[in-house]
């Protein structure tokens, strides 16, 4: 894999002013162009701090963070870095700035001083990608929670970033909304977008290329979703999806033949019932 790195973090430490302990303690991480990385970890493990470091919202107190080869310490690079890396936060309402959907999406490109036809093209594309084309003239605050989340995503996409950092952006969505949001990410990834997805929901990590576990401000595990769900996640007290628990329980009691898939239908078909 010789893809260019988008993010290179070397020994990054960060302490919030006045906080007794460090949020990040010597974190090393490399993320390549076009990768979809799921960052998982408990509340307070440093995931959100990491997101802000990657977008130059915070500067490491020790160590360095390079975004596309540029150090976030270098103030002359910061505007470019922020343009290249879009951050979508936990609560979409914090990010909505205009009262009409299309105006909200246009806010970023307008601030870049782009010509109006270019703004229109970007807004159209971003709304299309976020699945909001039919809502473009609606009031931003009349949208449902899931739609607001996708509006925040559209606003980020209109900046045509090289990378997207999503900080728990699905936590307010219902299962269907989450599914549509994730499939939207899937198509962005196919289009070459680098995606860093911070999540508590283990099932969301399944679709990524790579899972990185953050614990107490360090990256403690890094591998494929297959290896992660193959056992690694047990070590960090992540919640096991209930069907996986059921699968392991039935398997360990010899109630399922080896080789059965951890899928409800497959398990039912494989049972030997009298």
């Amino acid at each position: 894999m010789n893809r260019k790195p988008i993010f290179s973090l070397r020994g990054v430490e960060y302490a919030y002013p006045g906080a007794p302990s460090r949020a990040l303690c010597g974190l090393d991480l490399e993320i390549a162009e076009g990768e979809w990385v799921a960052l998982v970890g408990a509340n307070g493990s440093g995931k959100s701090t990491l997101a802000k470091i990657c977008n130059a919202l915070l500067t490491p107190t020790q160590g360095d963070c390079f975004v596309m080869g540029r150090n976030t310490r270098d103030e002359t690079c910061v505007p470019d870095i922020r343009r290249a890396v879009s951050l979508v936060f936990q609560n979409p309402e914090d990010q909505i700035v205009a009262s009409v959907v299309e105006e909200d999406v246009a806010f970023g490109p307008e601030n870049l001083g782009l010509p109006s036809h270019e703004i229109r093209v970007r807004v159209d594309r971003a709304l299309e990608m976020a699945g909001l084309a039919s809502c473009r003239l609606k009031g931003s605050f009349s949208l449902s929670g899931g739609q607001k989340q996708r509006l925040a995503l559209a606003g980020a996409l209109a900046m045509q970033p090289a990378a997207l950092i999503l900080d728990e952006s699905t936590s307010m969505l219902d299962p269907e909304g989450r599914q549509s949001f994730l499939s939207c990410l899937g198509s962005l990834k196919s289009a070459g977008m680098t995606i860093v997805q911070i999540t508590h929901r283990m099932e969301e990590a399944i679709q990524s290329d790579r899972v990185v576990v953050i614990d107490s401000g360090r990256s403690v595990w890094d591998g494929t979703p297959g290896d992660f769900f193959g056992g690694a996640y047990v070590r960090w007290n992540f919640e096991e999806p209930p069907d996986v628990s059921l699968y392991r329980e039935l398997l360990s009691r010899g109630l399922l033949p080896d080789g059965t898939l951890p899928d409800v239908g497959a398990m039912l078909d494989a049972l030997c019932l009298s």
Binding site: E249, L250, R253, G254, L255, L256, L271, C272, L273, S274
Partner: peptide
């Protein structure tokens, strides 16, 4: 799990070799 165990035809664990499900439906 308890229900499945009760109704399991043959505990696979103990009869893995010749057709674990000989007693199946």
């Amino acid at each position: 799990v308890r229900k499945v165990e009760e109704r399991s035809a043959t505990p696979l664990k103990y009869e893995p070799a010749n057709g674990a499900c000989a007693a199946s439906d």
